[in-house]
């Protein structure tokens, strides 16, 4: 029971390969794997302005930490962007973690709230719409606000802390809901068509598991605890996550296999959906595949 490479005390057993790694070998493994993804899928170019979507949680602070380490070598400009949905006892705690981290590392932090941009906090929206699943409103607002603010900040890329577990869940959710058009927008760098109104979203942790990201965050002392959103249990994703976690325990490597299989067919999906026209929303002018964008549709329904 020792690290495979240096024979010291291990901190993790990699589920996919059963290899034990110590703290320093694990950090090397983790950062090399993220860098490999960045190079292989051309997620970054020298001189890019990267806006990093941060929530103050383990995934986003880890990706911010990694990109901040790469900053000088790749001549990157880094800005952190935090979306404050207004979720009491959840977001208010993680905002403090994000502020503390950005202050320590001298990273510029921008905060955009639902209250200021949509007139209400998520808690208020949920109070008024008890039967609507919070994640279905929140996801639409968050994606839109991240894109809009990144564009205003003149970002070249919008980086997120999405990991292999998140991607495996999205792939399976879209399959089970026959929502393949949505899957065509997944992958380490998102988007099907280039449009200056959409900032390409990049996922450097695409091939790293949630446990690996949590281990990296713990070893860097990035977060105090791993909080779960209070609305999480309502979501379909939550069910899919449990199914996949059970499968991973019984059949190690399941999530890697699912994502690897998806990556092989992703070029075909992107090709199939490449002709989807991107219009401007008649209400707000934001880019949209339909006459009225998702945000305006949700606002019409719930506010």
């Amino acid at each position: 029971m020792s690290c495979k490479f240096c024979k010291t005390k291990p901190v993790i057993t990699l589920t996919n390969s059963n290899i034990n790694l110590c703290k320093s070998c694990f950090i090397k493994y983790f950062e090399r794997k993220a860098l490999k993804t960045i190079r292989q899928y051309e997620l970054l170019k020298k001189g890019d302005h990267v806006v990093v979507a941060v929530s103050g949680g383990k995934d986003s602070l880890s990706v911010l930490n990694l990109l901040n380490k790469l900053k000088d070598k790749m001549k990157l400009t880094i800005t952190a962007l935090l979306i404050d949905e207004g979720i009491k006892n959840y977001r208010d705690k993680s905002i403090e973690d994000a502020k503390k981290f950005c202050k320590e590392k001298k990273i510029k932090l921008e905060i955009a709230s639902y209250k200021k941009n949509f007139g209400k906090t998520l808690d208020d929206m949920k109070k008024k719409n008890k039967n609507t699943i919070a994640c279905s409103m929140c996801g639409v607002f968050r994606r839109s606000l991240l894109n809009k603010k990144s564009r205003e900040l003149k970002a070249d890329k919008l980086a997120t802390g999405h990991n292999l577990d998140d991607e495996a869940q999205s792939i399976l959710m879209n399959q089970l809901r026959h929502n393949i058009a949505l899957s065509s927008r997944l992958g380490p760098i998102t988007g099907v068509k280039k449009d200056p109104r959409f900032i390409p979203r990049i996922k450097p942790f695409y091939f790293l598991t949630e446990k690996e990201v949590a281990t990296y965050a713990y070893l860097h002392n990035l977060v105090n605890d791993f909080n779960e959103c209070t609305y999480c249990e309502e979501s379909y994703r939550f069910e899919i996550r449990d199914i996949l976690n059970g499968m991973e325990q019984r059949h190690p490597g399941t999530k890697h296999a699912l994502v690897a299989s998806f990556i092989e067919i992703l070029p075909l999906l992107k090709n199939k959906f490449k002709d989807v026209e991107i219009k401007s929303c008649k209400n707000c002018g934001e880019p949209s595949s339909s006459e009225i964008c998702n945000v305006c549709q949700v606002i019409e329904k719930i506010l």
Partner: peptide, 16 residues
């Protein structure tokens, strides 16, 4: 399920 937890002894991560 060991794939979704961290275990800590004396502030250090330990394995199965």
């Amino acid at each position: 399920n060991p794939t979704i937890v961290l275990a800590i002894k004396n502030n250090e991560l330990i394995i199965e």
